[in-house]
Write a protein that binds this DNA or RNA. Structure first.
Lengths: 178, 178
DNA sequence: TTGACAATATATCATTTTGATATATAATGT
DNA sequence: ACATTATATATCAAAATGATATATTGTCAA
C-alpha cells in the first residue's frame, strides 16, 4: 500500500497559512475542522517527523526560548503535495454514527431506549449548531477573501446538515412515541 | 484502555437475527449499514475469533459440507452485551469527509478545482440517494414490525441528510461560480 | 504566598481499523 | 472449454485512536 496518510494533508493545509507546532495543529483540528475531520496527538507528531524526513516540512528554531516549542514550516515540495491532493477529485467520505448503529439494532430493545438515544443525539447536535451559527456570522461579511469563502462553505455544510439532523430527530421521536 | 471494539456490536447486532459467516457479515455491513458504519474483513474475522474466546458467540458446524463455511451463533452472554451497549446512551459520532477537507483548504487553488470537488461529491450522493429511496419504499408498508421501524428510521436519516447535502451542493456551486 | 488547577507542549504505547493481498473453491455465462 | 465473478477465510503493513507519561507555565483564589 502506497502512502495514504490523510493527516498529512490536514497538516499541510494548516501549515500553508502559518508555521505551527504540533500542539497548535491539534488545536486547529479541534476547532472548525472537527466538523468534518479529526486527528490525535498520536497521529500528528509521528506524521510531522516523517514528513520532515520526506522534505515536506522543516523544523524552525524556537525564538522565544521559554519552553520546548517546535514550529514547522511547509516547504515548496509540501505545497506541491497539498495542491496535487486538492486537484484529485476522488475523496473518501465516511461517517461512523454510533447513534444510527444503535437505532438500526434498536428492534431488540424497548422503544424508550431508542427514544433516549435519539434525544441524546439531538441534544449534542443542537449545541454544536449554535456554535456553527456563530462561526457563520463571523465569516459572512468577508466572502471576497478566498480563504473565508472556503471556510464559509464548510460551515454552511455543517449548518445545513445539522438542521436536517434535527428535522429527522423530530420525525424519529414521533415514530418512536407511537 | 478497556475493550472498545465497536465492530463487536455490529456483529452481535447482526447475529441477533440469524446465524452468519464472516463473509455474510461483511455483505450485511456493505448493505444498508454502510450508510452510517463500515467494517472490513481485517476487523471482522479477528473480532469473531476473540468474541468466541469470550463466549459471546459460538461456532456452528457447517451442515452443507460444500465448502468451508463457519457460521456463528450469538450466545445469551452476547445478547446481554448487545443490550447493555444499546442502553448506554453515550455514542461517538464521527464523520471524515475528505470532500469537506479539500474545500476547507481550497483557498490555495483556483475555484474551478473546488467546483470540481463539489460536483464529484454531488454525483456520489445523488446516486446513493436513489438507492435509499428504494429501501424506504420497501420498508414503509410494514412499520408495525419493530425491526422494520428501526431500519426505516436509519434509512430516513440517510434520505433527510442526503437531501440536505444536495441542497448545500447547489449553494456551494453558486458561490464558487461567481 | 502558596497551593491547586488548567493550559501548554512533546512523545509514546496498546488497541483498533483499514485497505490490500493471498489462497482456494464454486457458480455463471459465453 | 474458458474466463470471469462470487464465495469464503485469513493475514499483514500502515494508519488512527484514545490514553497515558512527563514537564513546564499561567492563573486565580484561600
Amino acid at each position: 500500500m502506497a502512502k495514504d496518510r490523510k493527516i498529512d494533508m490536514v497538516i499541510l493545509g494548516l501549515l500553508a497559512h502559518e508555521d505551527l507546532t504540533g500542539y497548535d495543529i491539534k488545536k486547529r483540528i479541534d476547532g472548525a475542522i472537527s466538523l468534518f475531520w479529526k486527528g490525535s496527538f498520536g497521529s500528528i507528531y509521528p506524521a510531522l517527523s516523517s514528513m520532515e524526513k520526506e522534505g515536506l516540512v522543516e523544523k524552525k528554531a524556537d525564538a522565544t526560548g521559554k519552553r520546548e516549542r517546535i514550529f514547522y514550516h511547509v516547504t515548496d515540495k509540501g505545497i506541491d503535495c497539498l495542491k496535487a491532493w486538492l486537484e484529485d477529485e476522488k475523496a473518501t467520505n465516511d461517517l461512523k454514527y454510533e447513534t444510527l448503529l444503535k437505532l438500526h439494532f434498536g428492534g431488540s430493545v424497548d422503544r424508550a431506549t431508542s427514544l433516549k438515544n435519539v434525544e441524546a443525539f439531538e441534544k449534542e447536535i443542537a449545541e454544536k449548531l449554535s456554535l456553527l451559527q456563530l462561526y457563520k456570522k463571523n465569516l459572512e461579511p468577508d466572502l471576497d477573501n478566498e480563504d473565508h469563502l472556503h471556510y464559509y462553505l464548510t460551515v454552511s455544510f455543517g449548518i445545513t446538515t445539522y438542521e436536517a439532523y434535527l428535522k429527522w430527530c423530530e420525525e424519529a421521536k414521533k415514530l418512536l412515541s407511537k
